[in-house]
Design a protein around this nucleic acid. Structure first.
Lengths: 212, 212
DNA sequence: GAATCTAAGTGGTCTGACCACGTATGTATA
DNA sequence: TATACATACGTGGTCAGACCACTTAGATTC
């Protein structure tokens, strides 16, 4: 039962390989899409077993940092698409209260996206947004998917997508509000009038809550 | 072994093992600290090679979801403390845009947390918050860690933690602003005066931006 | 009863083998 | 020459077995 100090556990090989890969990528200036050495070559170059190389690669793959194509090789992925949030989500998102939090969070994030759009999206994009909304039949989800996409912050878009994928369990709210409200919302964005946006949006939320 | 044809993309064994483990954890109600079956047992139970089991376990370990102790076994970790993110940070956080988005997102989420606190946290908690802030030496990160914790929405807290662990990898913002500003922020929460909170917070952000 | 030794169990690593798949090479054909 | 096909090679995907180092618990010994 003695809790004695642990001198220094020998570093795991696969962890070191992860580090080596990082260095390698940095030194060689490899970018998303580029190919990294084959498992066998890495195994030889680093003097480790191929299985250890694979453990490292598989871990990075699960993180979404690399992509492997059988018969072709291993490639660096677009890091902006790391799956961290999804993974954590799929692993422990079974709580009950979570459902309520999810809905709330979705609303919050959507508002954030609108804010970001109002404050720094290009006029043209908002214009396109309005045009799209005016000429298409869309659901609430589609509307905010569009908003998340044109918001200038990619990370916020990712967060929205994750939250949405969980919050939007098939059933609940696939309703379609009156298009006029959405158009009004876009107009408020275009005028960069955040005050107005907030009013319009919270009004929409209130309606939805009551309807539910 | 059954070798069935999979015309579509053949699912990788280690990915399926990750899924099986998730189910296993859920069904058996395993919690942080609990031990999961040994690699050899999993290999046998799932009819897969031990190396494939290891690939899955190593990936989850790198994610910080499990912990392995040589000679003892593999254990579930406290998910809330997934600090794996820093890995991603050290790996590919060279992209300017990503860093900017991160900082911006962190600010946004923090504001959201403040909003949530102001709108529905218990008075007592805000009071405790203020007391803590008044009697402790804290960093900006600690302050918002506290805020994220007492905000009523657990999902928002989790998002903050993720974003924070990403954003706070280098030694950038370990600064300590004047305590008075933070106290003022809490006061604005207590008075449920979101207007004021926004002003105070954005003021803080502006200062930080300039300081940087 | 306490200290010690021993065996079993577990993760850590390596090697070698086979498969499935993509691509490049080369050969045969039109 | 140009196209089509066939083959060989390289790559990731997976498995099996073998060690090693370490922890734990049971058996043994004092």
């Amino acid at each position: 039962m003695d809790r004695l100090k642990k001198p220094a556990s020998p570093p795991k090989v696969y962890i070191e390989i992860v580090g080596k890969l990082r260095e390698m990528i940095e030194e060689d200036g490899l970018e998303p899409g580029d190919k990294i050495p084959s498992e066998r070559e890495l195994s030889e170059r680093l003097n480790v077993g191929r299985s250890s190389v694979r453990e490292a690669l598989r871990a990075l793959e699960l993180l979404g940092l690399i992509e492997t194509r059988r018969g072709e090789g291993t490639f660096i992925r677009d890091f902006q698409e790391h799956r961290l949030v999804e993974l954590l989500g799929t692993f422990f998102l079974q709580d009950e209260k979570v459902i309520k939090d999810l809905a709330e969070t979705k609303t919050i994030i959507e508002l954030d996206c609108l804010r970001l759009i109002a404050s720094s999206a290009a006029d043209q994009e908002i214009k396109d947004f309005k045009e799209w909304a005016g000429s298409t039949q869309f659901t609430d989800e589609m509307f905010f998917e569009h908003a998340a996409r044109i918001n200038p912050n990619r990370l916020m878009e990712r967060i929205w997508r994750v939250v949405n994928s969980y919050a939007g369990c098939p059933a609940d709210g696939r309703f379609i509000r009156e298009k006029a409200e959405y158009l009004e919302l876009i107009d408020s964005l275009f005028s960069r009038d955040m005050e107005k946006t907030l009013v319009v949006y919270s009004q929409k939320v209130r309606k939805l809550s009551n309807g539910e």
